[in-house]
Simulated assay, not measured.
Amino acid sequence: MTVYVRRVEGRIVEVCGAPQPGQQFSAIDDSNEEVQALINPKRTLGLADYAAAVQAHVDAVAMSREFHDGVTAATYLTSTIPRWKADAEAFVAWRDQVWAYSYGELDKVKNGQRLQPTINAFINELPAISWPDE
């Protein structure tokens, strides 16, 4: 399919489906790489995407031990029930390791010291929890 593009200093800055009267648009095939990059930009994962995935993982680990979420698990640090207190202590220590690792590795990505991993690969890198009775 043909689209019409307007260029500034050689770069496409606008794509239209029809020629625009009074403006300098040129016809080009819509399969052109530059056109496709404008129409379907690649989304770059940001810190918020990784933070949300890490938090979801933290919450899932807490829920695997029948806590409502990570925040709830942490509140059991002062529990009078020994098992719940021990679980909370293990969870909080692990959670801190997870976030320290996450921020350290994402800083490396920002500084060009490592390639940006996919979210699934990043989650698989995180430390594993060791529950008290395992």
Results as ranks from 00 to 15, higher is better:
residue 76 Y to G: 01
residue 38 L to M: 15
residue 67 F to R: 06
residue 111 N to T: 11
residue 129 I to N: 05
residue 30 D to A: 13
residue 74 A to R: 15
residue 53 A to Y: 07
residue 28 I to F: 05
residue 103 Y to D: 06
residue 50 Y to P: 04
residue 79 S to T: 04
residue 34 E to G: 10
residue 82 P to C: 00
residue 119 I to P: 13
residue 104 G to D: 09
residue 61 V to A: 05
residue 91 F to M: 04
residue 111 N to W: 10
residue 26 S to P: 00
residue 90 A to S: 14
residue 75 T to Y: 07
residue 107 D to G: 05
residue 8 V to N: 05
residue 59 D to E: 07
residue 130 S to P: 02
residue 21 P to K: 11
residue 59 D to C: 04
residue 1 M to W: 01
residue 77 L to N: 06
residue 85 K to G: 02
residue 134 E to R: 10
residue 11 R to I: 02
residue 134 E to Y: 02
residue 85 K to L: 04
residue 92 V to H: 02
residue 75 T to H: 08
residue 83 R to Y: 08
residue 29 D to A: 13
residue 105 E to H: 12
residue 112 G to W: 06
residue 41 P to E: 04
residue 11 R to Y: 08
residue 14 E to F: 06
residue 48 A to H: 12
residue 105 E to L: 09
residue 50 Y to E: 02
residue 52 A to H: 09
residue 114 R to P: 03
residue 45 L to H: 05
residue 40 N to T: 05
residue 37 A to P: 04
residue 41 P to Q: 06
residue 4 Y to S: 06
residue 36 Q to N: 07
residue 84 W to P: 02
residue 25 F to N: 08
residue 8 V to G: 00
residue 111 N to K: 11
residue 119 I to G: 07
residue 77 L to P: 10
residue 60 A to P: 00
residue 70 G to R: 07
residue 23 Q to C: 11
residue 85 K to Y: 01
residue 78 T to K: 10
residue 101 Y to S: 03
residue 70 G to N: 07
residue 79 S to D: 09
residue 59 D to P: 06
residue 22 G to A: 03
residue 113 Q to R: 11
residue 29 D to S: 14
residue 3 V to E: 04
residue 17 G to C: 04
residue 10 G to M: 09
residue 35 V to D: 08
residue 55 Q to W: 04
residue 70 G to S: 08
residue 23 Q to M: 14
residue 77 L to M: 12
residue 44 T to V: 15
residue 65 R to G: 00
residue 127 P to N: 05
residue 103 Y to R: 12
residue 32 N to G: 00
residue 2 T to Q: 14
residue 73 A to Q: 03
residue 116 Q to T: 07
residue 94 W to A: 02
residue 20 Q to G: 02
residue 16 C to A: 13
residue 69 D to H: 13
residue 123 I to S: 07
residue 128 A to L: 13
residue 105 E to R: 15
residue 120 N to G: 02
residue 78 T to P: 01
residue 107 D to N: 10
residue 93 A to C: 01
residue 94 W to N: 02
residue 30 D to Q: 14
residue 11 R to P: 00
residue 6 R to Y: 09
residue 104 G to C: 06
residue 83 R to I: 12
residue 81 I to K: 13
residue 69 D to S: 08
residue 112 G to K: 09
residue 97 Q to W: 00
residue 5 V to M: 03
residue 98 V to Y: 02
residue 17 G to N: 13
residue 3 V to P: 04
residue 34 E to R: 14
residue 103 Y to C: 01
residue 88 A to D: 01
residue 84 W to T: 06
residue 36 Q to V: 11
residue 121 A to D: 15
residue 20 Q to T: 12
residue 41 P to H: 07
residue 130 S to R: 11
residue 3 V to R: 13
residue 35 V to W: 10
residue 23 Q to W: 12
residue 18 A to V: 11
residue 106 L to E: 00
residue 32 N to Q: 09
residue 130 S to N: 11
residue 35 V to Q: 09
residue 3 V to F: 03
residue 77 L to Q: 13
residue 107 D to F: 01
residue 103 Y to P: 00
residue 90 A to W: 03
residue 43 R to Y: 10
residue 12 I to P: 09
residue 26 S to Y: 09
residue 123 I to Q: 06
residue 97 Q to I: 00
residue 51 A to E: 15
residue 21 P to R: 11
residue 94 W to Y: 14
residue 134 E to G: 06
residue 125 E to A: 05
residue 45 L to M: 12
residue 101 Y to M: 11
residue 110 K to H: 09
residue 123 I to A: 05
residue 61 V to D: 02
